[in-house]
């Protein structure tokens, strides 16, 4: 077995700059969950098909289960843990709770991060735009209607950040 050399990566995760020594074959999801113990981000299909592992990299949604840590060197990563403020849910998180956009909850961190990316770009998206932004996120509980309503509710309340 080849032994690959580790190197130092500088990544800002949820506002905190970190210097970590990681092997070149480490995936972002493993870095977040195993090294940093940020287990909010979920591993679903493990192959980029379900969107449960979605995080933001420099504000853009990315699938952490198919992203190598070296790809985010020097960049800013945001996970679902970054959204709450002083222990209070963000308006987007609250709406998912109130409008039943989350049921078993496994896809929720990914869906919320993909929605967050959409709402930052477009504070008042149409149903079609929400569907498009979330096309890569699978949910087996809600049937998607409640997810759509949750994102819509944030936009309607004008509470989008």
């Amino acid at each position: 077995m080849r032994q690959s050399s580790k190197s130092v990566h500088e990544v800002t995760v949820n506002g905190r700059r970190r210097e970590s020594v990681v092997p070149p074959n480490m995936l972002l999801i493993d870095y977040l969950r195993e090294e940093l113990r940020l287990t909010g981000t979920k591993t679903g299909c493990d192959g980029g098909e379900c969107g449960a592992c979605t995080v933001l990299v420099d504000g853009k949604p990315m699938l952490s289960c198919i992203t190598l840590v070296s790809k985010v060197n020097g960049k800013e990563v945001e996970t679902v843990e970054s959204l709450s403020e002083n222990g209070r849910l963000s308006s987007l998180q609250r709406m998912f709770h109130e409008k039943l956009g989350t049921q078993c909850g496994f896809c929720t961190p990914g869906v919320i991060m993909a929605s967050e990316a959409l709402l930052r770009k477009n504070a008042n998206p149409s149903d079609e735009e929400i569907r498009k932004a979330l096309e890569g996120n699978l949910c087996r509980c809600t049937g998607y209607v409640k997810i759509l309503e949750s994102v819509k509710a944030v936009a309607e309340a004008g509470a989008a950040r």
Binding site: G51, P61, M62, A114, A133, G136
Partner: peptide, 9 residues
Amino acid sequence: IAGTTHRQS
């Protein structure tokens, strides 16, 4: 091609 998230990268 793929999904919105894939197309970013």
